[in-house]
Deep mutational scan, measured.
Amino acid sequence: MQRVNMIMAESPGLITICLLGYLLSAECTVFLDHENANKILNRPKRYNSGKLEEFVQGNLERECMEEKCSFEEAREVFENTERTTEFWKQYVDGDQCESNPCLNGGSCKDDINSYECWCPFGFEGKNCELDVTCNIKNGRCEQFCKNSADNKVVCSCTEGYRLAENQKSCEPAVPFPCGRVSVSQTSKLTRAETVFPDVDYVNSTEAETILDNITQSTQSFNDFTRVVGGEDAKPGQFPWQVVLNGKVDAFCGGSIVNEKWIVTAAHCVETGVKITVVAGEHNIEETEHTEQKRNVIRIIPHHNYNAAINKYNHDIALLELDEPLVLNSYVTPICIADKEYTNIFLKFGSGYVSGWGRVFHKGRSALVLQYLRVPLVDRATCLRSTKFTIYNNMFCAGFHEGGRDSCQGDSGGPHVTEVEGTSFLTGIISWGEECAMKGKYGIYTKVSRYVNWIKEKTKLT
């Protein structure tokens, strides 16, 4: 034993070699072989497995989906700052455009905790909710729209109204504003409101030439003092309507412009014939205590009207009353817009006519005020429907199939267009061939041609 100890002390290297040989010859039971080890760690190889990531292109799944990435790591994937920024906006807080917040056709661009709407022409605001041009839906104005110097929408209202708090709607500024039905039992019968379409306001006024200088022999019209197929109006439903009495009662109609003036057809009036105007009328054979009678003290036909040349060209006249009318729910003026808007309103496509005229061709006159909704007829169809001249200051309205029309005794009465609950004068009943005849239409004086003249002559002093 002493000898062994001496050998170990003198030859430590020998001992180490012996131990190493023993270990190498022993069977290893701690580690699995290569094949079995792979069965336990069965993990798919990654895209760049075996390579240094710093030297390969980034992978979106590896960089940002398996674990949260930084902007720089995302930049490695896209290799483009702009594309990385677009991805980053949604990656950080989701897609803010998912709810489609942009209105009126706006395009949404996502941002971090926010979004941006790219608005089409005519709109602005956070969600493109603000109209900035009158060309689109009248700028959301209830009545009139004008573009300011910086191309912003400025709404306005006709006389007797003021802008509401929203700067879009119009509200009454006087007790009985024009064009409004205020009798409670008839307010439910107000005709369907007309909503502004998209309009090209630059070209809204037709490029028409008034044929002022045409000389033409007097034409022989049949029954051209021209509501057939209409309905009984309720008291106060058309408070701007008046009836004219002269040699015979209810020979023509008219509309209240203001307390002192009536507008009617020029062919209705004769110099030297006494005319009485009755406002607030409903049943011409009954006294309903809503009527107001006034005498006409002055007749002003349009300066281009000449019955000797043509009885229905420039067929418009103004009547001055001896005493002002007292405005109330049964006696209310009709609204008159400017030339541009009167023309736009007419193009809405349908209007209402009213009167006490004959209820059928050569038949009896109506006792109760009649009204009828009539569609506008395109000019080409209008011209083809008659052998008589249709001037540019006239328009056609009615039904091709016949059966409904204005008729004798309705002449001078109103053709009105309702705009968001307020009625505007767009025409004056003038003439036609018979009444409600198939293929024939009622012919009306186009008020847009005469609004400046009306307003100039009827100013209240």
Rank of each mutant, 00 (worst) to 15 (best):
E418R: 09
G398H: 03
D93R: 15
N48T: 14
F399K: 04
E434N: 09
A436V: 04
G363E: 13
D322M: 01
C145T: 03
Q2R: 15
G179W: 00
N127S: 11
R364K: 12
L60I: 14
K89M: 06
E285N: 07
V331G: 00
Q219D: 06
P44K: 04
K347W: 04
E456H: 06
L318E: 01
V296T: 02
S187F: 11
K39I: 08
V92Q: 15
L369F: 11
Q241Y: 15
N36D: 09
P301K: 11
C18H: 03
E73T: 08
N328T: 10
C157Q: 00
W431R: 08
D131G: 13
G246E: 03
F176V: 07
D110P: 15
C69M: 04
Q185G: 12
E79R: 15
P101F: 04
E116M: 15
E142L: 04
A164H: 11
P197T: 11
E320P: 00
P177T: 03
M65A: 12
S182G: 09
L460T: 05
N42G: 05
W118D: 10
G160Q: 04
F238E: 02
G421C: 02
V248C: 04
F176K: 04
I316N: 00
D131L: 08
S49P: 14
G427K: 00
V359N: 09
R364C: 05
S107G: 10
T276H: 06
A436R: 10
F71C: 04
T389G: 12
N452E: 07
T194A: 10
C117W: 00
E76Y: 06
E171G: 05
G105Q: 14
D111N: 15
K51D: 08
V4K: 14
G13F: 09
V248T: 09
V243P: 01
T417C: 04
G253Q: 09
Y352W: 05
S329Y: 07
H314F: 07
S255F: 01
I210N: 05
N151I: 07
V269I: 14
F224I: 12
V202D: 08
A307N: 08
F224M: 12
W88L: 15
R298T: 05
P333V: 00
N59V: 04
I17E: 01
N36C: 04
R191V: 11
S182W: 09
V154M: 12
I344C: 05
C396I: 02
E66N: 07
L211V: 13
K152V: 14
L23P: 01
D110M: 15
E82R: 13
K152P: 06
L20G: 01
K126Q: 13
P414C: 10
V56F: 05
K293E: 13
E434I: 10
Y22L: 06
Y444D: 01
V174L: 07
T276W: 07
F345Q: 02
A233D: 05
H400R: 12
V451S: 14
G403Y: 13
R379M: 14
D315Q: 01
R75M: 06
E270Y: 03
E79K: 15
G402A: 13
F251A: 10
E420F: 15
F123Q: 06
T133P: 15
P333C: 01
F55M: 15
T461E: 15
L52C: 07
C141A: 00
V273H: 04
I428H: 03
S217V: 13
T84F: 05
F123W: 15
E208Y: 14
I210M: 06
E98I: 13
N343L: 04
I334V: 13
S350A: 13
L318V: 06
C28Q: 03
R3N: 08
Y91R: 10
V30C: 04
P172K: 06
K362A: 14
Q185K: 09
P324F: 03
F78W: 09
I256Q: 01
E259N: 06
G229M: 13
I275S: 03
L367A: 14
K39H: 12
H289I: 09
D338V: 03
V153S: 15
G402P: 10
H282V: 11
K89A: 10
R75Q: 06
Y391W: 10
N328D: 10
K168V: 08
H267M: 03
E98K: 15
A233W: 07
D338I: 03
S99T: 14
N258K: 02
L346F: 06
Q96A: 14
N283F: 09
I299A: 08
G351W: 01
F87V: 14
E281Q: 12
S70A: 14
F31W: 12
V331D: 01
I454W: 00
T81I: 10
Y47E: 08
H314L: 00
A9N: 13
L319M: 15
R46A: 15
I275G: 02
W240P: 01
N245K: 02
G357P: 09
E193G: 12
C268G: 00
I40P: 15
L24A: 10
E27T: 08
S423N: 13
S365V: 13
L211A: 11
N304V: 03
K45R: 13
K89Q: 12
Q143I: 01
A192P: 05
Q370T: 06
W356H: 07
L163F: 01
C141D: 00
N166E: 03
V353W: 03
R373C: 04
C382M: 02
A308E: 13
G160S: 07
L14N: 01
F251V: 08
V257D: 00
S49H: 10
V195W: 09
G412C: 07
G230M: 10
N100Q: 13
C97Y: 01
T386S: 12
Y391N: 08
N310Q: 08
A9Y: 10
G122Q: 06
V377H: 03
K146S: 06
D249E: 03
N306T: 03
L369W: 09
V92D: 09
D93M: 12
E10D: 09
F360L: 14
N135H: 13
F31C: 09
N127H: 14
Y441W: 05
Y91A: 14
F31P: 06
G230I: 13
E286W: 08
D200G: 12
L211I: 13
K387Q: 14
N393T: 14
Q90C: 07
V331T: 06
K247I: 10
L369Y: 09
V181F: 05
P301G: 04
L189C: 07
Y352A: 06
H302M: 02
F395V: 02
L23S: 01
C102S: 00
G412Y: 09
E61M: 07
R379I: 11
H314E: 04
L319V: 07
Q185S: 09
E159G: 08
R364E: 15
L369S: 13
Q57H: 10
P414E: 03
D338N: 09
H314M: 01
W240A: 01
N138H: 11
L52I: 15
V419P: 01
N245D: 06
K146M: 10
I454H: 02
R384P: 09
F221Y: 10
R449Q: 15
E208M: 09
G254M: 01
N59W: 05
K362F: 05
G105L: 05
M437I: 12
Y161C: 00
Y330V: 06
L369R: 13
P172H: 05
D322G: 06
L372G: 12
E433K: 07
Q57A: 11
E270M: 03
L367I: 11
D315S: 03
L23I: 11
V296N: 01
C119G: 02
I334M: 01
A37E: 05
P324S: 06
F345E: 01
S107N: 11
K455C: 04
Q167Y: 09
K168S: 04
I262H: 00
L189N: 14
L376T: 10
P12R: 11
P12D: 05
M6T: 13
D33R: 09
Q143L: 00
S329C: 04
A173H: 09
L321G: 00
E281S: 10
K274H: 03
I344R: 11
E72Q: 10
T417V: 10
W88R: 15
Y330R: 10
T332I: 08
F221S: 11
V416C: 06
D232Q: 09
V326H: 13
C178R: 00
C119M: 01
R373Y: 07
T381P: 05
T225E: 11
A250Q: 09
K146G: 05
N306P: 02
T276N: 09
N304M: 14
F251S: 08
V377K: 04
H361Q: 05
V447L: 10
E259V: 05
D322A: 05
N147H: 11
Q219L: 06
